[in-house]
Design a binder for these strands. Structure first.
Length: 137
RNA sequence: UGAGAGGCCCGGGCGGCCGCCGCGUUCCCCCGGGAGCGCGGAGGAAAGUCCGGACUCCGCGGGCCAGGGUGGUUGCUAACGGCAACCGGCCGCGAGGCCAGGGAAAGUGCCACAGAGAACAGACCGCCUACCCCGCCGGCUCGCCGGUGGGCGGCAAGGGUGAAACGGUGCGGUAAGAGCGCACCGCGGCUCCGGUGACGGCGCCGGCAGGGCAAACCCCACCCGGAGAAAGACCGAAUAGGGAGGGCAGGCGACGGCCCGCGCCAUGGCCCUCCGGGUAGGUCGUUGGAGGCCGGGGGCGACCCCGGUCCCAGAGAAAUGGCCGCCCCUCCCUCCGGGGAGGCCAGAAUCCGGCUUACAGGGCCUCUCACGCC
RNA sequence: GGCGGCAUGGCCAAGUGGCUAAGGCGUCGGAUUGCAAAUCCGAGAUCACCGGUUCGAGUCCGGUUGCCGCCU
């Protein structure tokens, strides 16, 4: 079958990223940190986050992003349906081979998805700015 | 052949399969989109953001001051702190290279340590005894001569200090010395000549004034309003809130009471319509330009003019990727069949002109020096 | 993408162009003590890096690197 990957399958909006971070589960491997949140009925989408701390130079950052995208494209049939997935490099200064990326992606995605939905204590909503923070209830 | 100098250019190539982004076009469509075809899709620095402009908004009557920048001259340019040619200084046998290269005789400030002295000079070690004074010795024509020591003085040559010591070398001169005099060099001034000019040259004069630092304050000449595309312009939900109008309900008034109707009332309530601000989001700005290529012409050159031809990435958390084969280059191993590893620095975000910085390897042109040969 | 600022021992930091680069905390060595604390004495610096100006640069001027902040 053909393996297409279009812009409509990308996470683009800040809201989508925030929703996935807030509701999604995480799984870390040798190369990848996967954040995944379910979106039942919708096609699975990809988000990328490769910061300056990973590689200082833009060439290497772009290289990582392209590898991540290619791994997502080629392994798309083996991924869970109906989810938003954000890929983050697990460590700074990595140069992963494509095949290992594909294997790790297929392995980590279901694990991250399984851990999603749990309320994370650190992800609480901040109080409205008008109220005094320590006021008694 | 070897060693160098200057300038320009490239920075892997071809093919196959799977993909990505933009535009155009045809078709399908459940109006969200989708399919096919065609075209285009990273750089020499896209980088740093160091200068200069275009563009947009804000500010603005003019001038001066403050502040910042530039700094040989003449040009080039939209402009520049860029570039070209030329001038001057330093370096190099040379081709050439480097220079923030105006003013220190407008003023202020600084010059540590060392040294006698560091800026209207000064005398430590020294040099001198011609003049004046004193002591001693000798001579004689008896108040002078010679020697020696000292004082008062003269001097700045030599030593020494320093980054730097109030021109340098030589000769004359002198008690010793000193631009004191002379020659050459340096420096300053004047006339003339050449040059648009920076400046250069011939001649004459002056006997020497001028320490250094202006990337110290400063003076002079010239330039500069501020912010930056996340600039800015437009459209604009949902929810909450604001304003205007109307309706209903409400209160008050007149008639003896009630209902209807009428008039008045103020704020609050409900509903409807309209208006404005504005968030999410969207559209524009946004790529046709001081543009690229080819040809011709002008100029030493930077560059300019004319003609032809081409349209050449554009956007969003952001496309230009993955795999394979062949070729090219480099390195390693080799049983010479081959095998293995590697191929720079680096990724557009409004655009353009420069500068600076990073960079494996390679190509082209011009020139210099040394040696050899013809 | 744009606009600003900073860099001096392990940490916090002063520093008119003139030295052997203040000071505090900490560390180490020594003295003191039966052992410690306190106290006293001492040690420890490529001034982020590379050039330039100057007789002389932590300081002045260019460039490079790293870190921090603001606009959204």
């Amino acid at each position: 079958m053909r393996l297409r990957f279009r812009r409509s399958m990308r996470l683009v909006r800040r809201r989508d990223f925030q929703r996935t971070y807030a509701e999604g589960g995480r799984a870390r491997g040798r190369w990848l940190l996967v954040v995944a949140a379910p979106r039942p009925g919708e096609p699975t989408r990809l988000g990328l986050s490769v910061g300056r701390a990973i590689w200082r130079r833009a060439v290497q950052r772009n290289r990582l992003r392209r590898l991540f995208r290619e791994a997502f494209r080629l392994s798309y049939p083996d991924l869970p349906r109906g989810a938003d997935v954000i890929l983050i490099p697990a460590r700074p200064r990595i140069e992963p081979p494509l095949e290992e990326l594909r294997d790790e992606l297929v392995e980590l995605c279901p694990r991250a998805l399984a851990k999603s939905g749990r309320r994370r204590g650190s992800r609480r909503r901040s109080p409205p700015p008008g109220e005094a923070p320590g006021a008694p209830a």
